[in-house]
């Protein structure tokens, strides 16, 4: 069963003929240089951006799914959020429950999980970039959606919070979820179950990171030389 399937997805000027099938229980890394279409792909997959081709969630075309039902199936975390109004952090996280009758299930747990308990009553527009990112991830988590699409979730996080996000992705996948995250750190990508590599709006490669992320591809797509050697390894205690 595919959780998420894209069939010849095209967005003029940004994506061309991208087809992928993503299964449950997987952590998928979305890689590619700046401007290669990662954010666009995630938004199309989340049903937020119209496109040519087809997007299916568990076999159903996304257009046929009512909007509140979509929110219960797929969560999307934007790359960055600009907050004009000073809603309290807890209130923003609780918005993730909007499609569940606005209850408070899991809100406190998500706040604790992302180290936001002490910030719960702070206005969200007064937070730092990393703190805002954690708020958005917590909001996505409380939706309890089995498919999680995260746009550069690690971009402004410190090492510890970054590792915790990866740990969360692992837990969600173990529980049968599908987690897709765009990222730039190729070393992180190596720890995931699967990677998709975009270049110039086209899907350049897909599959196991160990095979896909070879020196030839990295040279071609990113213009960097890859060399294996000793490196600093970070882990949660």
């Amino acid at each position: 069963m595919t959780a998420l399937a894209l069939n010849k997805v095209t967005v003029p000027g940004r994506l061309r003929d991208v087809s992928v099938k993503l299964g449950p229980g997987r952590r998928i890394g979305l890689l590619g240089p700046n401007g290669s279409g990662k954010s666009t792909l995630l938004q199309v997959a989340a049903g937020l951006l119209p496109s040519g081709g087809e997007v299916r969630w568990s076999g159903r075309r996304v257009q046929e799914i009512a909007i509140p039902e979509r929110a219960r199936q797929v969560a999307w975390v934007p790359q960055e959020a600009r907050f004009e109004f000073g809603f309290p952090v807890r209130g923003v996280v609780q918005q993730g429950r909007y499609a569940h009758g606005d209850d408070e299930t899991g809100v406190d747990a998500a706040l604790a999980r992302f180290d936001l308990t002490t910030l719960a009553q702070r206005p969200v527009n007064a937070l730092s970039g990393g703190e805002r990112q954690r708020v958005l991830l917590a909001r996505a988590l409380v939706t309890a959606a089995p498919v999680q699409l995260w746009d550069e979730p690690l971009a402004s996080l410190d090492p510890r919070h970054g590792l915790e996000v990866l740990m969360l992705a692992k837990e969600l996948a173990r529980a049968g979820g599908t987690v897709v995250m765009s990222l730039h750190d190729l070393r992180v990508a190596h720890c995931l179950d699967e990677v998709l590599v975009l270049a110039g709006g086209e899907l350049r490669a897909a599959g196991n990171p160990g095979t896909v992320l070879n020196a030839a591809l990295l040279q071609e797509v990113f213009g960097v030389r890859a060399r294996t050697g000793e490196t600093l390894i970070l882990e949660l205690p």
Binding site: L48, W76, R82, F83, E84, F85, Q95, R139
Partner: peptide, 20 residues
Amino acid sequence: GRPMDLLSLGEREAQSLGVG
């Protein structure tokens, strides 16, 4: 009131959370 809360923090975000 409630859907306006979500919309005021971003359109795509609001839609992804279930607001028409």
